[in-house]
Simulated scan of single mutants.
Amino acid sequence: MKLHTNTIELPAITQAATKAVAAVVDAHRRPSHTHDHSFDVTLSGDGNLGRQSGTLTYREATWDQKGITLAALFEVDETLAVPRTYPDAASFHWATFDRFRTLAAADQHILHRWSYSGRGVTGFYAYVAWACTCGARLRRLDGINFYTSISLAHGGDR
């Protein structure tokens, strides 16, 4: 997972992963064109073996473990960006229906089974949504819309 940040350093990433009952397996600090610096981070958790890195030496982090980790990091740096996924904290919380604002590690669902739950259209953007039987929901912008549309549509705070 690539993280672009202005303020976060490795100890904060490790602490955030611990909140999710996950572990940082690998992290490399790199330059960033959009922020002060970036990290390439690999998390281990309760997910399937080896999917994230192609190795069978550890289990990958689940979607919930990654989400709890990211939520903790967004609390430290709201401008943190995950390229092509979450350009900032507001977009992350919008896309995950605010699931990670309150989800505790003990309430995680290890294996989500996503099913299509519909489309939404506003005057600013269109999105596609999915839901899991556990109640988790996820949405992504549809078409050529950008997350700046989300911010504009919600008065700059979303």
Score class of each variant (00 low, 15 high):
T5L: 05
T5R: 11
T5Q: 05
L10Q: 08
I13R: 09
Q15W: 10
V24L: 03
A27C: 09
R30T: 09
T34L: 04
T34M: 04
H35Q: 04
H35I: 00
D36K: 15
D40S: 12
G47I: 06
L49P: 12
L49Y: 13
G50C: 04
R51G: 07
R51K: 11
Q52G: 10
T57V: 13
R59C: 07
R59V: 01
E60W: 02
E75P: 04
D77H: 12
A81T: 08
P87S: 12
P87E: 06
A89H: 12
F92N: 00
H93Q: 08
T96H: 03
D98G: 07
T102I: 10
T102S: 15
L103W: 05
A105S: 15
A106G: 09
H109C: 08
R119P: 00
G120C: 05
G120R: 15
V121L: 11
T122L: 05
Y125T: 04
Y125N: 06
Y125W: 14
A131H: 08
C132K: 03
A136I: 00
R139S: 01
R140G: 01
I144A: 13
N145M: 02
F146M: 09
T148A: 13
T148Q: 15
S149E: 08
A153Q: 15
H154C: 06
G155M: 12
